[in-house]
Design a protein around this nucleic acid. Structure first.
Ligand SMILES: NC(=O)c1ccc[n+]([C@@H]2O[C@H](COP(=O)([O-])OP(=O)(O)OC[C@H]3O[C@@H](n4cnc5c(N)ncnc54)[C@H](O)[C@@H]3O)[C@@H](O)[C@H]2O)c1
Ligand SMILES: NC(=O)c1ccc[n+]([C@@H]2O[C@H](COP(=O)([O-])OP(=O)(O)OC[C@H]3O[C@@H](n4cnc5c(N)ncnc54)[C@H](O)[C@@H]3O)[C@@H](O)[C@H]2O)c1
Lengths: 215, 215
DNA sequence: CAGGGGTTGTGCATTATTTCACAGCCAGCG
DNA sequence: CGCTGGCTGTGAAATAATGCACAACCCCTG
């Protein structure tokens, strides 16, 4: 029963998917859930899921399954999403405003606590309940906020620049929406989200799909 | 030299990343590029990249590297992104409007040609240069547009519903932004993009990161 | 035309991840 | 209490993906 071995990245992604699902069904009054029920709901292979949990010493009850409430708490503990976490966002454009207004974030304990931009026209504007601040003062501001998670929603050309500013301000992990690869020093984590890339892969799928068998 | 064997999904994702990068450097007048240069720019391991290309019979020149222009065209051909592709979008909310206004899409040949919603207040509104249409008429409209790529930007509770409508209208691949797992019939491709999941994984990283070694 | 520095394509070893399959456990029931 | 149907945890086998290492190749230079 390895407790602290290296965890495969796919395992973490599956746990996150599952966590999302558990928050869903929590509202309905489901008490316990089996790994195979999770498979049908999320597409995660049942044995895979059980093994994922076993990495962390999370166990269900044979013959019964997992206690929904407990399972959710345990996964939250693993992913460290039990407590509210401050997040700062750079780039108050189209995507940035959508993110600030996205209620799904606070619902999952991620709170955007500050928004920055470098455009004088944007600085000072109010986005939902936040005032856009000058990116030049990011470091200063974050010294007080203490956020360690940052989101890049600025243009690709500025992404590296923004990255450097974020890292300088003590940000330790970055979610990057700009369609470009950013360089970070060791000890800083990055995940890229690129819609175009997703569409490109879908486009490939599309070309390989058999013709529809409609009458 | 396997031409039409099963292609690993990571290979496609890497090609998409690389494609994005190539469009970047095309503007500057770079003629050729080596796999190791691609590695430093994108983080994709050089040998890996060469192997990825070899699946498709795309070859560079030993001692020289790859012709940028040609390579870009070849990858575009693989991913089938050489020609304009119509895309339809469901959900004219925060995220939906950001997507419609996102110039990166047409730049990469993806054109959002119609937007649908079920909220009477949204229907008829103009989003950039598109008028929001009633989702009830999606199938009818798409019979003319012939789009085969669909984007879901509606709420999670409606996602399955929207999926069914899309599939019914002849959509063959779906990019799903709703934080829920959707079921599709065989022969329909799906990719999910879930920001919360990304943040959750980052949150895990964060907890495992060594403390910053700042003086 | 020989030699050198640089780069590719790819078989093979290595590492990572998934899947199988089954012993062991649990609750309910007669 | 003993059996039964259902579900878990996990070692071992299978599959997938990556990284290595090197022959083959190309251009340039002298
Ligand atoms: N809009 C979308 O749906 C969408 C989708 C996928 C990816 N993206 C990517 O997200 C990023 C933002 O997209 P958008 O549509 O919101 O663009 P946008 O132009 O609307 O917003 C970009 C914002 O970043 C600000 N900015 C520019 N340079 C900056 C800097 N150095 N420091 C701080 N702020 C700076 C600009 O002033 C602007 O407000 C882009 O990289 C885009 O490719 C957008
Ligand atoms: N806003 C973000 O930054 C963001 C980020 C990540 C994921 N998401 C996800 O994207 C989706 C949309 O987010 P949003 O912030 O734009 O929400 P939103 O509420 O602003 O927009 C949702 C839109 O979908 C429409 N809609 C609802 N039911 C529909 C149906 N059955 N058919 C057609 N249209 C329908 C609504 O009328 C509304 O216009 C949500 O699932 C959300 O979780 C949003």
């Amino acid at each position: 029963m390895p407790r602290e071995t290296k965890i495969p990245l796919p395992t973490l992604e599956r746990l996150a998917t599952c966590y999302r699902y558990l928050t869903d069904i929590e509202s309905r009054n489901v008490e316990t859930i089996s790994s195979s029920a999770i498979e049908t709901a999320t597409g995660i292979h049942a044995a895979q899921f059980r093994k994922d949990l076993s990495y962390f010493g999370v166990f269900g009850r044979p013959g019964i399954g997992y206690d929904v409430d407990d399972l959710k708490r345990r996964i939250a503990g693993i992913l460290k999403v039990e407590n509210e976490q401050p997040v700062i966002l750079v780039g108050a454009g189209n995507l940035g405003s959508a993110l600030v207004g996205f209620f799904g974030l606070p619902q999952h304990n991620f709170h955007i606590v500050a928004v920055f931009d470098n455009n004088p026209r944007k600085i000072g504007q109010t986005l939902w309940d936040l005032q856009v601040q000058d990116v030049g003062r990011l470091s200063e501001t974050n010294a007080q906020l203490g956020a360690r998670i940052g989101i890049i929603a600025g243009p690709a050309v500025a992404a590296q620049n923004i990255t450097d500013v974020l890292v300088d301000a003590g940000i330790r992990v970055i979610l990057n929406f700009a369609p470009t690869t950013i360089r970070v020093p060791d000890g800083v984590g990055v995940r890229n989200v690129c819609f175009i890339q997703e569409l490109a892969v879908l486009s490939y799928y599309l070309s390989k799909l058999p013709e529809p068998n409609v009458g």
